[in-house]
Design a protein around this nucleic acid. Sequence first.
RNA 1: CGGGGUGUAGCUCAGUCUGGCUUAGAGCGCUUGGUUCGGGACCAAGAGGUCGCAGGUUCGAAUCCUGUCACCCCGACCA
Length: 620
Amino acid sequence: MHWRNYFIPTTKETPKDATAASHVLMLRAGLIRQLAAGVYTYLPLGFRCLRKVERIVREEMDRAGAIELRMPCLTPLSLWDESGRSRTMTDVLLRLDGAVWDWAAGLVLGPTHEEIITELARAYLKSYKQLPINLYQIQLKFRGEARPKSGVLRTREFLMKDAYSFHDCKPSLDKEYDNMYAAYCRIFARSGLPYLAVEADTGAMGGDASHEFMVLTDAGEDRVAVSANGDYAANLERATAAPPREGEAPAEPPREVHTPNAGRIDEVCPVLGLPPRQMIKTLIYTATEGPAAAGAARNLAPGAGNVAPGAGNVAADPRVGRGAPRKLRIVALVRGDHEINELKLNRAAGLTLELADPETIEALTGAKVGFAGPQGLIDRIDKLIIDREVAVLRNAASGANKTDYHVTGVNPGRDFPLSGDKVVVADIRTVAEGDPSPTGSGSPLHLRTAIEVGHVFKLGTKYSAALGAVYLDQNGKACPLIMGCYGIGLNRILAAAIEAHHDDAGIIWPMSIAPFEVLVLALDPRDEEVMRVATQIHDELAAAGIDVLFDDRDERAGFKFKDADLIGIPLRVVVGKKSLTAGGVEVTERGKEGKPIMSPASVVEQTVRRVREELAKLAR
RNA sequence: CGGGGUGUAGCUCAGUCUGGCUUAGAGCGCUUGGUUCGGGACCAAGAGGUCGCAGGUUCGAAUCCUGUCACCCCGACCA
């Protein structure tokens, strides 16, 4: 490919609105152009990268035995009614109402395809003999993302590989889950990503396994906890630390202390002379009676966020909670130096909780906000949820349920119950930097930001049951299909790769997803000998099957070098009068030092070998 | 959805507070000619803008007012 005839609109200027490195570089290198909020055109260079990623994904999915198909972007609203997600995903589903045609109101742009694939399964997968089967597609998704950001990391339209497997038993699903997990490892390794598989939250689905594939970078939106020795990694939403040890100090009697205007932990501690870890935070929540809402959607669960196929929300049973819903009062306790994890809290409560307003808190405790404590509340509330780290405290301090007073010498079990109908002791806090790994090694956990690039999920029968997708087992009995879903955000792979591999000058592409593998740079295109040598190298590389770009532009050397660094093609062959005089051409690797001179006769062979070596290394 | 901010040339921005001194500007990019030529060159001459849009105030609006749209940032939300 001759640069002169190609289209690579690079810029020197850094775009105003871009902060993430990948965003800045994708714009500057001429990979993408924003058309609207969260909507991007992939320019030729960016499109080539995307296609390379697509190819890796396709090859590995095929190799893993999955079968490719293509489902539509336009999907009938009625299917989303069947699953209940037309109600639970209202702000995610992009509807076509407002259109002038009546029929358009019945269509939505698919944010994921659980419903669609389940409809297909319902129609065709009628016998256990057809199982297991794994169907996948690489298709655009549309989501009513409230706030697109970070370039291509969070968009309203994106490319996702979503796969859905169907099984007649759990062991079969487990096996395919492991198979997909392994395929994902190969995909991300081949893409050159420093990825990490972490335990992910399963939301309202409960119990079943789910893993997210993360790339640790500064630009991500997700937080993960990773142990220093690598024995544990989990999404912060679900990460847990080793359980606490029982406190041993002898219990002191409770004592009321005047703490005027000191309602916050950081205000009270100096007054009481206690560290935050000896404090009990008393948080008051309300909830409406009924089942818990679904958990958080994952971005890459196909159904959820950008990467995973379809772990969508399944609606709560609309019949539950009809009539006169009663407001429940729930009190949660966490240590003063800990943050509560509302996802864990909701699961422990079996309800979706909301922080109570000040009026409710004052009515319950008889004190202003900031002075609540667990003592004596149990008879006036519906549930007391105690973090397990609070349960082992000795001689802690809490609010006194009396404005401007706290109590010291508070002891769980004596001053508030640790058991009983209304009491739950559970892990309801977010792990903190330095907490011990739950594996028993005690290795300290570190908190990192990350980009979610993939998600594997055991769905179970959520959608098959909702849509009536049943097969007949060996006994002729109709059973709902057991499903798994597996998503990968292709655009995010590009952004994550750039986040992980760049320097001040530009992108440093992994060989496997680089738009071109080799750049031949002719320094003086008006010099006949330079052009003859450069053209010959380009042509021979191309003939050898190498993706090669030929910078034949009549520009100054510095200009072309800067562009080369920016677009980040891994191998660069520089042909100039100077190098020819020195006996050949220069070969450099992007991001590495040194520019050895090679003879034009051997450079093609050596470059081809280097490309293949690099690709093989990634595929290992 | 809450809070904040920005819309002026393809890009990055000045001018807006204090309406008229601008025939709407600069740099980058683009066109033409010349010089230069191994790390984003220089000189000269050009092309390019309904100042987001709609109303209003005024003798006069990029500038003031009202509305509206778009985009960005923080937060919320994100089976």
